[in-house]
Design a protein around this nucleic acid. Structure first.
Lengths: 196, 196
DNA sequence: CGATTCTTTGAAAACAGTCAATCTGTGTGG
DNA sequence: CCACACAGATTGACTGTTTTCAAAGAATCG
C-alpha cells in the first residue's frame, strides 16, 4: 500500500530509496469504508493524507444545511483541510470517503520534519502548492466568468477520470449548480451533439 | 515612501532596524499614474509589489474580451500575479492602477534572497500565504454557495475601505455579476432597510 | 426481487443578463 | 463661472437561465 506513494515520490520528486524509507517510517496506513468521515467541522485537521486507493470529497455546509463540495481526491492526490492544517484552527470542513479507500497519513510534526530534512520532498511539495494556487485562481475565474454549461464541459475535460467515478449530483455541487440544472445542461449538450 | 512598508514590516513581522535596511536596499520605488498598466497578458510577472499609496486591480480577460477582476489591492497590500511569479510562465493577467499610486517593488531574485536571509520576513510571508489560501477557499465557497446579494453584503462587510474607493461596476466584476444586476440588488436592499 | 440511491422531467417562480436610454456627479476648457 | 464632456450608476422592458418542488424513471446493491 505504501508502494503507491513510493512510486509517486520517485516519479514526481526523484526521491532516493533511503528517503522513501524515512517517509515510510513516519507514515500511518489507514483503510476507510465508503461514507466514513475523515474530518468533521469543529475538529482539528492535523493530518495530510495521500490517497493510495479510492476517492474522497471535501465539503462545507452552508447555514441552510446544504453541502457544497470544495474538492475531490482520488488515487495519487493529497487530501486535507490545508487551511485548518496550516492555521491550527478548527476546521469548517468535512472530508468523507466516496468509496472504500486506503490512505497514507502524516501528522503535522512528521510532515514538517520531512519537509525540513528532505530537500527534494520540500521542492516537490512547493511545486504542488504552486500548482494548487494556480488551480484555485482558475476556478475562481471560471466561477465569475463562465456560464454553467462551459464550467461543466471544462470539468469533464480536466478531470475525465473523476467524471467517470463520481455521481453527477456531486459534480453539480462542485460547480455550484443544482443537480436538476446539470441534468438539463447535459440533455441540451447531447441534443446539440446529435444535431451536428 | 519606504516608511509605509517599514511600519508594516515592524508591525506584522517584528523586523529589526538592520533587517529593514536590508530590505530597503533591494527595493525599487515606483510611481504609477491612474490607468497605467503594471503587468499585461503574455508578459512575465517577475516582481512583487507592496502598495504604499493608491489602489490596483488584477484582472483577466475572457475570450469575448470581457474583463473579470480577480483581486484588488490598496495601501499595505501586496500585489503581483503570484501564479506567473512562481511558475515563471507568462502571465494571463493584467494589473493596472485605479488611482495615482506608489509602489515598492522586489525582483524575484531579491525576494527569494530576503526570504532566505531574514527568518522573520519568511515567517511573515508564510503567514500571509496561509491567509491568502484561506481567502481563496472562502471565495470559492462563496461563489458556489451564496446568491449574489449575500456575496455583495459580505464584500461590503469584509472590505469596507475598498467599497468606498472602487467603482461599483468593478465590484460587480469581482463578484461575477453584471453592473445592472448589482444596481438592482442595491436598490432592493435599500428598500428592505427602509421597510424595517 | 425490493430498497436505496441517483438521475431525469415538467411546470411555475425567482433570478440574472441584454440592450438602450436616462440620470448623476465630476472635472476641464472656454 | 458656466457649459459640456465623460465616467459611472440606474432604470425599463425583454429574454434567457437557474431554482424550486413534486413526481417519475433508471441504476445499483444486497
Amino acid at each position: 500500500m505504501f508502494e503507491t506513494l513510493a512510486i509517486y515520490l520517485v516519479e514526481k520528486g526523484a526521491l532516493t530509496q533511503s528517503e522513501l524509507e524515512l517517509i515510510e517510517q513516519v507514515s500511518v496506513l489507514k483503510k476507510v469504508r465508503k461514507n466514513q468521515l475523515l474530518l468533521e467541522e469543529g475538529k482539528f485537521s492535523n493530518f495530510i493524507g495521500f490517497v493510495a486507493k479510492g476517492s474522497f470529497r471535501l465539503f462545507r455546509t452552508a447555514e441552510n444545511g446544504q453541502e457544497h463540495i470544495m474538492k475531490f481526491a482520488i488515487e495519487n492526490w493529497w487530501i486535507s483541510d490545508f487551511t485548518s492544517f496550516m492555521s491550527g484552527e478548527p476546521s469548517n470542513c468535512y472530508i468523507d470517503a466516496l468509496e472504500n479507500s486506503e490512505l497514507i497519513l502524516f501528522s503535522r510534526e512528521n510532515w514538517d520534519h520531512l519537509l525540513a530534512t528532505i530537500p527534494n520532498f520540500k521542492r516537490m511539495i512547493d511545486r504542488l502548492t504552486a500548482k494548487n494556487f494556480e488551480a484555485h485562481q482558475n476556478r475562481i475565474f471560471s466561477n465569475i466568468s463562465e456560464p454553467a454549461e462551459i464550467r461543466y464541459d471544462n470539468f469533464v475535460k480536466k478531470y475525465p477520470t473523476l467524471y467517470n467515478r463520481i455521481p453527477l449530483y456531486m459534480i453539480a455541487s462542485f460547480l455550484g449548480i443544482k443537480r436538476e440544472t446539470l441534468s438539463r445542461i447535459r440533455k441540451q449538450a447531447a441534443s446539440k451533439r446529435d444535431a451536428s
